[in-house]
């Protein structure tokens, strides 16, 4: 059985938020890159403890919004001043003022699409399956246990060294997860 499966990584279990916070700091300082923390609730300060960099989602939002305002203005100009020129309320055929609300709504809409799409893209979602769910104990991650998983794909991963690091960090239970 185990021959046909691939090693996914090591899963370490912790009892308290403080324990996992300090473990995350140790793993961060050891220089691991492909790892994550799973907790039943958000822990303030965990981003720093994990050394997470700022999200790049903002760039997707920005370019979504910039596209939105350009397309919005272009659409109104094309419809009202070019394709079917029509005078409304004595206003100019095209004006940045009267067409602003729609262009603005398009900005918001495409910025929101950019944020959502960018978030999914950067998180590599949607994804049907994560090998970590094969662990029975992992179900407690939504109840009262705190987990830290280091993937075998991480360049620094080594069966013995990584296990030792997690043990030194105070994990009560370490298991190997296979895909």
């Amino acid at each position: 059985m185990s021959d046909s499966t691939v090693k996914y990584g090591l899963l370490a279990e912790f009892d308290t938020a403080a324990d996992i916070m300090h473990a995350a700091e140790k793993v961060r300082d050891a220089g691991y890159r492909r790892w994550d923390v799973y907790t039943p609730f958000p822990i303030h300060g965990m981003d720093d403890a994990m050394g997470l960099k700022k999200s790049k989602v903002g760039w997707f939002t920005f370019f979504g919004g910039a596209t939105g305002i350009s397309l919005g203005y272009l659409m109104i100009w094309w419809m009202n001043a070019y394709d079917y020129a029509i005078v409304v309320g004595g206003k100019p055929l095209f004006s940045a003022i009267y067409s602003f609300p729609v262009a603005y709504e398009c900005t918001i809409l495409l910025a929101a699409f950019g944020s959502l799409g960018g978030m999914l893209f950067l998180n590599r979602l949607p994804r049907w399956y994560n090998p970590i769910f094969s662990s029975e104990r992992f179900k407690k991650a939504t109840h009262d246990k705190f987990f830290l998983a280091i993937e075998a794909m991480d360049p620094k991963f080594s069966d013995t060294e990584t296990r030792k690091l997690l043990q030194d960090s105070g994990s009560k239970h370490i298991e190997e997860v296979r895909d």
Binding site: T16, A17, A18, M21, I43, H44, G45
Partner: peptide
Amino acid sequence: LGVHQYEDHK
């Protein structure tokens, strides 16, 4: 001042 919640319960 950034004293985190988890530290309060230690």
